[in-house]
C-alpha cells in the first residue's frame, strides 16, 4: 500500500504547568492521504487547534510519531521544519495572525519572501490571490483598517499563495457571513479538485459537510472518523 501523506501514530500532547499536568491529546492515530478534504470537529477545548498545530509542524508532540510525506518530523532541524511550513503547508490561524502595520498585499507576500521569489512575481501573485478573495480594493490596508472578515480572508489568501500541497485552516469561516463562507468553501473545493489536501477545523456542520471526511475530537481523543452521514448521527447523539 502507498504511504499516506500524513501518518500519525500513538501521538500524545501533554502541557505541564508547575504541578499541573494537562493531557490535551491522547493516543491519536491518523492517516490522511494526498487529495483528501477533511473537517475536524469537536467541542471547544477538545484539542482541535493543538492537533492542527502539530500537523502543521508549528508544534511538536510530547510523544508518538508523525510522518509527513514519508519524513519523520521529530528528526528534523528547526530550519528544515521552517522550509516545510513555507513550501508544503498553508496555515490559516484561528486568530488570523496578520503582521501589524503591514499592508494586506505585503502580508500575503511574506511567505514568498522567505521562499526567495522575486519581488515583481510576488506582487502579481499576491494581487491575484487577494482578488480571488474579493479584496482587490483593500490591497494597501493594514490589518487595523480591515474588518474581522476581511482580515480572515487576507489570512486565507496568505495560506493559498504558495500553492502548498496541504492547506490547514483553523475555523476559516468563523467570522465570515454565510454567503462569503460558501464562497470560501467553493474555493477550497476547487483547490481540493486541483489536488491540494485540505484539513479544516469548524464548529458548523453545514461547513463540515463540504468535506469528504469528518474527524470528531472529544477530550483529546478521536471518537469518530468517517463520512458526513455518520457524522450527522453522532452530532445528534452528543
Amino acid at each position: 500500500m502507498r504511504d499516506s501523506l500524513i501518518k500519525v501514530s500513538g501521538l500524545n500532547k501533554i502541557y505541564r504547568t508547575d504541578d499541573l499536568e494537562l493531557k490535551v491529546l491522547s493516543d491519536i492515530n491518523l492517516h490522511i492521504d494526498a487529495g483528501e478534504f477533511v473537517a475536524i470537529m469537536g467541542p471547544s477545548g477538545s484539542g482541535k487547534s493543538t492537533l492542527m498545530h502539530i500537523l502543521g509542524v508549528l508544534d511538536l508532540p510530547t510523544s508518538g510519531t508523525y510522518y509527513l510525506d514519508g519524513q519523520n518530523v521529530g528528526s528534523l532541524s528547526d530550519d528544515e521544519l521552517a522550509d516545510i511550513r513555507n513550501k508544503k503547508i498553508g496555515f490559516v490561524f484561528q486568530a488570523y495572525n496578520l503582521l501589524p502595520r503591514t499592508s494586506a498585499v505585503e502580508n500575503v507576500m511574506l511567505p514568498m519572501d522567505y521562499a526567495g521569489i522575486p519581488d515583481t512575481d510576488q506582487l502579481i501573485l499576491a494581487k491575484r490571490v487577494l482578488a480571488m478573495m474579493g479584496l482587490s480594493d483593500r490591497l494597501d490596508h493594514p490589518p487595523n483598517k480591515l474588518s474581522g472578515g476581511q482580515q480572515q480572508r487576507v489570512a486565507i489568501a496568505r495560506a493559498l499563495v504558495m500553492q502548498p500541497a496541504i492547506i490547514l485552516a483553523d475555523e476559516p469561516t468563523g467570522n465570515i457571513a454565510s454567503v462569503q463562507a460558501e464562497e470560501i468553501m467553493a474555493i477550497f473545493q476547487k483547490l481540493n479538485a486541483d489536488g491540494h489536501t485540505i484539513i479544516m477545523i469548524t464548529h458548523e456542520l453545514n461547513i463540515a459537510e463540504h468535506a469528504k471526511r469528518i474527524i470528531h475530537l472529544f477530550d483529546g481523543r478521536v471518537i469518530e472518523d468517517g463520512n458526513g452521514h455518520q457524522q450527522r448521527r453522532i452530532s445528534k447523539k452528543l
Partner: peptide, 16 residues
C-alpha cells in the same frame, strides 16, 4: 514575540 512567531510559522529560517 508574536510577530517573530508568525514569521517563523510562515517559513522564516533562523538566519532570516
Amino acid at each position: 514575540t508574536r510577530e517573530i512567531g508568525l514569521r517563523k510559522a510562515l517559513g522564516a529560517r533562523k538566519k532570516v
